[in-house]
């Protein structure tokens, strides 16, 4: 702010003033969506249902990518060279999250992580959760393995993998 300006606009409201609703109205818009999985992710989900993680290879840069996609964003080449990856990998990074999206506290932290999937190119991972581990024991570089839902419960969704657990 400039020394040439002495008065600043904007009127802060206290929590109490805000909640009295005299100064605000409240409405919950209702929107529903049905997202198509698409060509590449559609196949990825179908393979998850069967208990496989599938990737795709670019003929130009030779990257093996996961999640799969129909076009390499580096080379802008169409992709069609599918291949199964392992259901094991390495923790690239993780967090111990003690709050929900609306900032409520939870006692046991959720453990989101990026997991580099074995068989994909180095550094190529997916976001998932870790489980069956003491949160304080999680380390970057740790080897992990997918824990699958029983076959009859799989729905063709990323949650067909319940979480990744340490690889003994």
């Amino acid at each position: 702010m400039s020394i040439n300006i002495k008065k600043f606009p904007g009127t802060p409201l206290s929590k109490e003033e805000f909640e009295k609703k005299v100064l605000s109205i409240y409405q919950v818009p209702k929107l529903e969506y049905a997202w198509d999985a698409g060509v590449a992710i559609g196949r990825y989900l179908a393979e998850l249902k069967k208990g496989h993680i599938i990737g795709i290879r670019c003929p130009e840069c030779r990257r093996i990518m996961v999640p799969p996609r129909v076009v390499c964003e580096w080379c802008f080449r169409p992709l069609n060279d599918w291949g199964y990856l392992e259901d094991t990998g390495t923790v690239n990074t993780f967090s111990l999250c003690y709050v929900t999206w609306d900032m409520r506290r939870v006692k046991e932290p959720e453990i989101p992580a990026v997991i580099e999937i074995d068989g994909a190119s180095p550094g190529h991972g997916i976001m998932h959760r870790l489980g069956e581990i003491d949160p304080q024991e999680v380390k970057i570089g740790m080897r992990v393995k997918a824990v699958w839902k029983p076959e009859e419960e799989r729905a063709g969704a990323i949650t067909d993998i319940k979480y990744f657990k340490p690889l003994e």
Partner: peptide
């Protein structure tokens, strides 16, 4: 499709990047 079913929140990406 591949991330929201895991119920992420915005803090996750910052925490993952910071770590």
């Amino acid at each position: 499709t591949t991330e929201r079913p895991l119920r992420p929140n915005l803090l996750w990406i910052f925490a993952l990047e910071m770590n």
